[in-house]
Design a protein around this nucleic acid. Sequence first.
DNA 1: CAGTGGTCTAGACCACGTG
DNA 2: ACGTGGTCTAGACCACTGA
Lengths: 262, 262
Amino acid sequence: MAPVPSGVLGAVDPTSDRAVFRQIADQLREAIDRGRFKEGSKLPSEAELVEHFGVSRMTVRNSIGVLQGEGLISAEHGKGVFVRPRPPVRRLASDRFARRHRDQGKSAFIVEADAAGSRPEVDSLEVKEEKPSRDISARLGSPRKVLARRRRYLLDGRPVEFAVSYLPLDLARGTRIAEPNPGPGGIYARLEEAGHRLDHFDEEVRARMPSPGEAKMLRLASGVPVIHLVRTAYDTEGRAVEVCDTVMAADAYVLAYQLPAT
Amino acid sequence: MAPVPSGVLGAVDPTSDRAVFRQIADQLREAIDRGRFKEGSKLPSEAELVEHFGVSRMTVRNSIGVLQGEGLISAEHGKGVFVRPRPPVRRLASDRFARRHRDQGKSAFIVEADAAGSRPEVDSLEVKEEKPSRDISARLGSPRKVLARRRRYLLDGRPVEFAVSYLPLDLARGTRIAEPNPGPGGIYARLEEAGHRLDHFDEEVRARMPSPGEAKMLRLASGVPVIHLVRTAYDTEGRAVEVCDTVMAADAYVLAYQLPAT
DNA sequence: CAGTGGTCTAGACCACGTG
DNA sequence: ACGTGGTCTAGACCACTGA
């Protein structure tokens, strides 16, 4: 068993008021912050830390759990504990739905990822009619049924976002919007062709820890929150024509908005 | 010791592939979701769960840890484990910095909280000159020193937000902006009086788990992420005149934006 | 005071990943 | 086969809360 690199980690004081596992977590955190353990690199194994600090394994595991909860490290069964790499973030600009950005063939996600040198994928595509939740229904003006378009987005094989678009049935049924591939420019282009010129979008942004289902769908490490974004699209007559409910891996995104000062 | 209420929690299957502590976490999560344990109410004690499921205490504690990480429950030493109440959220609208909202005497935070029936407080107010971080410096056009205005916001005694405003020294030194109370309309009103008419704001929104210092400052329970918001204010000449760096308790906020469709 | 969660020990066996 | 983390036990003592 390799010893812990000398000088990187000190000793703990069992008589201190601060719990031993917190002292160990503090030392590891500081070592990571100072770059003594680099992004993606392996921390000393539990056994090595037990040896180094002279504590029981549960104490070491407890300290590792603290840093996992902070999103700093993640454990991989059979391999070790690693400093969590910060993945490249996708920047969502507030003008991303402007008409000029509607590409002829490809979706905004694909275009943008290609430009950034990432490999984009969309999977789990599912389109079906269903009864809306109370919340979605209220936002769309209480339709009895809606068309739901579900899909998951991945970058370089990593799932980063899961989104569901809801549209009132009278706008969607029988159009390309109800097909898996809605055609060039996406559903917004189809809505405008049908006479529903878009006026503006409302976006609501929340952050929270993922449900177990979301963590699985996005393959989230512990300590990674999600950004929950609900966007409502309005046409020029003030009618809500679409609600898009999106859950994003928070470590993969930064949202950018421009606000008028007037 | 009171028994676990009958019918609410079942049994675990030690031969299952799913770990026992996950099965217990699943059962507790489902009971909470179904409302069998209401918001703010106390869960069975660790000892009662040990008795009910016939497992060791560490197993029960492990399952409790899972739900804490999800932000569903929080433990209080000496009292018990409770279903985490969802605090009222503060909605930040994208027009919150419009001139018409600049109240004569009070800050936007105070006005809004009063209207919502909450008791607002601002503390830890600190104003000083300092050397900016690389990031802040870049956003402000690389000034050598800046004025930093730090403050913490509380609602009904609960800290919800910690904010730091940075301004280039040449705009702030010798003005009311450099005083703890910048006067009616706040620093934006002072900037405009000095001829820096505001044109727009850029906001960047991220979500992540808090650092230990942030968790302490905002008294965050485990399983509560923070929203990190960086806003840059530009005047009509395109100069960045202020950067505001804000860390918010994610369970206390929803951000609302309006985006043009053009 | 009794009851609660917080910390810690010293073991055990299992499941995963790699050589 | 071996080293890694994952799960689990059966205890112990401590610190906080409330009656």
